[in-house]
Amino acid sequence: MATESKQENPKQEAARPVILVSWSWMLQRFTGILLLVFLGGHLWVEHFMNTTTRVVSLRLTHWIYTFLDISLLIIVVYHGLNGLRSIVRERMIRSHFIWIDIVLWGIGIFTIIWGLDILWAFWYHHPFFVV
């Protein structure tokens, strides 16, 4: 009966806080909070450790770094491309929204595979795909 109450008292309905606008909106906030921790940790580690193949490989032998790097990769790609999606959607007509999603999902999956390939190369000093 939400529509009835809206007609009866539209002001009261408008004042009600909207908790979940959309999944993408909520996940953008959620991944943003996670990034404070993961990216903060990433920058901290990178500043205080040397960046050589040996150091990065040794670091990745500990599961916590592997976990941090894979998580950061997935979270940052989602947050970045979802942010781009919201900007692009403002400038596009509704019927094109599905194409934005398809293209961005494609880019996102490609980027994550690319990042995992780099991590894999550091683990074993040899990549799946050679550039």
């Binding site: 491309l81 690319w114 990042g115 780099i118 050679v130």
Partner: peptide, 20 residues
């Protein structure tokens, strides 16, 4: 977001035949 891709391009040096 642009830097993320620059970062991945630079890290991709490990994917070259000369690797490490």
């Amino acid at each position: 977001l642009g830097y993320l891709y620059l970062h991945l391009v630079l890290l991709s040096a490990i994917l070259s035949p000369l690797g490490s």
